[in-house]
Design a protein around this nucleic acid. Sequence first.
RNA 1: GCCCCCUUCGUCUAAUGGUUAGGACGUCAGGUUUUCAACCUGAAAACAGGAGUUCAAUUCUCCUAGGGGGUACCA
Length: 478
Amino acid sequence: MSEKVITRFAPSPTGYLHIGGARTALFNWLYARAKGGKVLLRIEDTDQARSTKGAILAILDGLRWLDLEWDGEPLYQMTRAERHREVAEQLLAEGKAYSCYASPEELAAMRERARAEGRAPGYDGTWRDRDHREAPPGIAPTIRFKAPREGETVIKDRVQGRVVFANKDLDDLVILRSDGTPTYNLSVVVDDHDMDITHVIRGDDHLTNAARQTQIFKALGWQTPIYAHVPLIHGPDGAKLSKRHGALGVEAYRAMGYLPAALRNYLVRLGWSHGDAEIMSTDEMIQWFDLDAIGRSAARFDFAKLENLNGHYLRVTPDIEIVQRLKALVPELPDGVALGERIDADGWQKLERAMPGLKERAKTLVELLDSASFLFAKRPLTMDEQAAKLLDAAGREMLAALLPRLEDVSPWTLEALEASVRSFADETGRKLGKAAQPLRAALTGRSASPGIFEVLEVLGRDESLARIRDQAHAGNSA
RNA sequence: GCCCCCUUCGUCUAAUGGUUAGGACGUCAGGUUUUCAACCUGAAAACAGGAGUUCAAUUCUCCUAGGGGGUACCA
């Protein structure tokens, strides 16, 4: 085995890349990068009935979006089925495995009986020592691993510590299905060995599997990798993650307008910490990450904190990058296609110019886009409830009075506009807010927006004046 | 049922055999302000319960409770 650290992320392609999987991938990636090693990607598709092409694509896509590039080509475990079968045959030949002719019905009955009698529902070992000549005809057997019945199996885990399983509690598991395909526990052992995996970092739902795999490693005379079983992520209510709260594919987070950097930063702090560090760059994560600082208790998923982090990353991301991300995001949104058509080249330019004021205020890209909608709105604007309130008689009167002042502003720059409006407010004995709020309503249709002078400037002279006239005049005719 | 794991503010977590148990998010109250955010200041907020070890336990041990995972010809 090489000295170099080799980790692997090994998702099964039976669904999207969920948030727990994403964190596992991140931990594997970080550890490999921290130690100057490699992360391999292995698609565990030995269950052909449940694996789908779409899931594989979603997983690869999710990892790329999170910017967790793996080393080398992804390995599809099924392509190694022949090798797995060889190892199973070897075990069989060495008397460390045996053929089992029990039918699914018999197994179900066996479990039923065990439950009724209050025993562990595992396989009872019927065919372990039974003569093969008693095998029922026409039945393709499974191959079962002959697990040790006495003693204990100990796993030394970098997160969980020393965990001891009594061998009597671990039954003889199927390593080769009756159709000759390998099952998970065999494939994992063979591939982890053949791929020189040094560290297995995965969810602690695999803790029992670690014991079974250790037994197989031993039977094969191979050295086990170093294990690190990370606690799972729960939903906000402490229960298992469900679709309603967080057990979404990473693409769902992308569609909700989260930034990969924010999601990574959020996930790395779920179960791992480095003193009081909260916001950290990827380089810092790599520098600081280690297995020993991973906690042993499950964490709950908290959208509020993710949002806070996302807001932070939005504020520090360059404007042009945000525009690019929005361009990529828009088609994924509900009504996104229509929205995309409404935003022309000029619209995207306006968006970029308005970005400093917009990104300051948004928690997600979706929210940002929504607050930018005034940029693309067609006159006459529809007013939301708050905006309508601001445009009462006094508000409209103010606009009518302010209008000629603005018409005289030249050049149409933020500084000149601010000077003009401020002097207007001064001279007419108004607080700035009394002028700014109706103006904001007229220009954006809302009561909250980026700074009003930025809005005027980005909208441009003609559009701004037209929007103000719409409201000033509407007041007269009403 | 059986096996395994876990338990510090609402949430993520830090630290320690002797501390005012720290930080962050969220909440609340102020400040700033053209709105909303952001930002600044402050506040409330935790060692699951019970035994034991010890001069001393949040920290070590055990038990209980609660939560989670596993118990497939799934991974």
